[in-house]
Design a protein around this nucleic acid. Structure first.
Lengths: 216, 216
DNA sequence: TGTAATGTTTACCAATCGGTCAAATTATCC
DNA sequence: GGATAATTTGACCGATTGGTAAACATTACA
């Protein structure tokens, strides 16, 4: 008798490994491009190069597939923030956080768009992750930033909005890529735009946070 | 004989005016929440409180409805950038641009999400608008910023990436609202978060662009 | 090599999709 | 008030949706 798919994890075969990988890769392609509601199982199956029932043998529902994808990608996605080091030099920590986030926008735009689509549409499938692990991590790092501000290493500012602004400016280059390209025109749409963006953002954030003679 | 809908604009009745308004309002609700592919005509008809065939009497296809909505909203959406004044004081111009964009994110989040959804999914329906009117407007304002930089009124920086960073940081509060709320927690999710955001962003941009003793 | 478990496919299902049609209803204007 | 045009609706269409059933093929392993 066929083992019910829920118990499948007891012993994963080589084929399971490969096919699930193959399916999630295709799912990332499709979900990131069309959002959950806008994506179809047929589409994903086609991109994965297998039949729909075969796909549904590995993931029983569209939701299950989406969830597996989120789970697999979320940890990696938060890596740059996790690397934010309280002991480091503030200016250098912020600079390298920006750089890492920009690299992710450049190298993993689909992952960025996957989350962007999800959050944009009300985060119906990742609410728990946002209010749980994400919030806790941000709270922790916000405390670090607050301490830096208190000791005068950077300007006095709201650490949460600082983090938001780093997220938004960097992820912008993945999520709104077509707009960026359209505005910059063909001649500046090469990979060099990430270098330009990095230069500008470091200038902005380092300059904007440096505790020279700040207002109030 | 019933006048074909294509020629309807020759003389618009009161009912046409009202119903189209009513439909586009509902369409904004639905499209901004689910994107084009993820939205259904039935959904929009239900929100609008009319039957589906009745809706299709005013807009013959889903595409036509979406297009009408984009056309109606785009002009307003670009208003803040258009107000950017070359003659004004740079610091004050940037400050008020940020403020206006934040107000739009607060007061018209659906419009922001409509475009975000569209751009995120590759802008299949607004490519022309991005490469045409939008690019031209941005090019024009970028020239203004470049002149400010050249005359030393602000730091030397890439004007395009400056505009991108203002767009992304401000629209973040509309597009990623649920994430912002989740991270800030209930206690800071009131309308006050826009005040906090405004304070931070002005601090960041004014400080980051001020031509004190800048690097290089 | 046989067999039991695993993997794949064909054919199908009910629900929903975007959209049409003709008939019925309502508004407009002389 | 009646004719005519504008509006609204219920019934319906073929295509696509997420998902299932069962037969079939393949693999792993004793």
């Amino acid at each position: 008798m066929t083992i019910p798919r829920a118990a499948k994890t007891l012993r994963r075969t080589r084929i399971q490994e490969e096919k699930e990988e193959q399916i999630l890769e295709a799912a990332l392609d499709v979900f990131s491009a069309s959002g959950f509601r806008g994506s179809t199982i047929d589409q994903i199956a086609e991109v994965a190069g297998i039949s729909k029932p075969n796909l549904l043998y590995y993931f029983r529902t569209k939701e299950a597939m989406h969830r597996a994808l989120i789970d697999r990608v979320l940890y990696t996605w938060l890596e740059p923030l996790r690397a934010f080091d309280a002991e480091g030099n503030p200016e250098e920590e912020i600079r390298s956080y920006i750089r890492r986030k920009l690299e992710m926008a450049r190298d993993f735009p689909r992952e960025s768009r996957l989350f962007a689509n999800e959050v944009l549409q009300g985060a119906p499938h990742i609410e728990d992750e946002l209010k749980g692990p994400l919030k806790e991590l941000v709270d922790e790092k916000a405390e670090v930033i607050r301490a830096w501000a208190k000791s005068g290493k950077i300007i006095k500012c709201d650490p949460y909005h600082l983090i938001f602004s780093i997220w938004s400016t960097t992820q912008h280059y993945a999520d709104f890529d077509v707009q960026v390209r359209a505005v910059l025109g063909q001649e500046h749409s090469g990979e060099g735009r990430f270098e330009d963006a990095a230069r500008f953002l470091e200038q902005l954030f380092i300059g904007g946070l440096r505790p020279d003679r700040s207002e109030s």
